[in-house]
Design a protein around this nucleic acid. Structure first.
Length: 105
DNA sequence: ATGGTGACAAAGA
DNA sequence: ATCTTTGCCACCA
C-alpha cells in the first residue's frame, strides 16, 4: 500500500472506516497500524485531524469508554450527542457501552 | 539530530 | 471500585 507519509494519514484513513453507531479505541487503531504502543500518537492524530475532512473523530474514544475532553468538539456534551444520534448507548457513568459498540478494524 | 509534548494503556496502592 | 504513576511512540520546532 501506498506508504503514507505519516502515521496520521493512516489513522485518519481507518477512523473514516468506523461504521455509524460504532466506536473504536486508540489502541485498536494503533494495533491495526502495526504500532500497538502508539495509542497516544493516534490520539494526537485525532486532535490534529482537520474537521473539514469529515472524519468521525467522535467515534474514536479510549479503551475505557471515556470520551475526549468536552471542549474538544466545540462544546460540552457535543461528542456525546453526536454518538447518541448514531445510536450509541451510554452507561450511567456517561461511558460508551464498549461491549455493544466497540468496533475494531 | 535532540527535546518536548500528548483526544492513551496498563499496573499498583 | 477509583485514583495515581510509568511507559510507549510518533510529530513539530
Amino acid at each position: 500500500m501506498r506508504p503514507t507519509d505519516t502515521l496520521f494519514e493512516r489513522v485518519w484513513s481507518i477512523a473514516a472506516k468506523v461504521p455509524r453507531g460504532k466506536v473504536t479505541t486508540y489502541g485498536a487503531i494503533a494495533r491495526a497500524l502495526g504500532s500497538p504502543g502508539a495509542a497516544r500518537t493516534v490520539g494526537w492524530a485525532m486532535r490534529a485531524a482537520p474537521v473539514r475532512s469529515g472524519l468521525p473523530c467522535h467515534r474514536v474514544i479510549n479503551v475505557t469508554g471515556e470520551l475526549s475532553p468536552e471542549d474538544t468538539f466545540g462544546g460540552p456534551g457535543v461528542q456525546r450527542s453526536l454518538l447518541e444520534s448514531e445510536g450509541v448507548t451510554f452507561d450511567v457513568q456517561g461511558r460508551v457501552d464498549m461491549k455493544r459498540h466497540l468496533w475494531i478494524p
